[in-house]
Amino acid sequence: MDLVESYAEDLRFARRPAARVLLGLLLAALAVFPWVAAEHLVFLATLIALYSIGVIGQNLLIGYTGQISFGQAGFLAIGAFAFGHLRIWGAPFALALLGAGALAAVAGVFVGFPSLRLKGPYLSIATLGFGVAVYQVFVNWEVLSGGRSGLAIASLQPMFGLSGTRWTYYVYVLLLTGFTLAAYNIVSSFIGRAFVAIRDSDIAAEVNGVSLTRYKLLAFAISSFYTGVHGALYAQILGHIEPQIFNVLESITLFVAVIIGGVASIEGSILGAVFVTLVPKVFANFREMVPVVYGVTILLVLIFEPLGLFGRWLKTRLYFQLWPFR
């Protein structure tokens, strides 16, 4: 029996002792990881961390608010190039990151406007168009993209005598932790409730005082901020960006991560990021197989486990909680 003493306690993060222990273990494991794992694995984990931020952002929009959107590559590119220019102009890492997120969020609000009129597939197509347009702008506008040679970004200066790889890992994991906590807090607040209300029934949401205009645009702004930061962190780790990186396939990959990880689940978003980061590595010698793997996995997920990897985990957990009684 799970007794709650007060409303405030009911709202606490990681309320159950078991959850707190697990969380502590997880954080400890993340801290130790770069000292026990090979360098290329640490780099891979860093990649997963930055990808998770983007997937969480898109899940806020697609999974929680129900706005199926394909403009992600556009926000990635805006975040990455804003970050690149800011860094080149001498802005420190944190400030450039904030600028990249903010600019992507502003773009998100603009892209969000069609969502006030368009629903379902029509919105998807409109946002897909945005992604393609941003791509074309960067490809054709050399002032923005740095021309044929692209933008070169100075690497992060390691601190505390850590190696570059370890330092980047710690910075990125810390950022992921922050963005994850913020996302948990958002979805459990009045904002998250408004998002889910819009997804479950937009008419009922409106009739209960939720402004569709305000909250749809807010969903676009927050998710684009996350995706912009993802783009910036990706640019930082690559050290060199050109527009070709941010093509439609990137939009699809983020979408795949949301669906496979589990719609409307923050933990699932991270699992989804693990999936889309590892699959291309596993199939490194059969590149052309990657989209096929995505496609087949999505079909399997939609048929057998609509809640994605996270749904699978919930069922497994329930199984063990009820064990040995089934």
Binding site: V196, A197, D200, S201, I203, A204, A264
Partner: peptide
């Protein structure tokens, strides 16, 4: 027209 995936309490909280 309920918010099907929310708890009963959260439905009221949207109100």
């Amino acid at each position: 027209r309920l918010f099907h995936n929310m708890s009963v309490l959260d439905n009221l909280m949207v109100g």
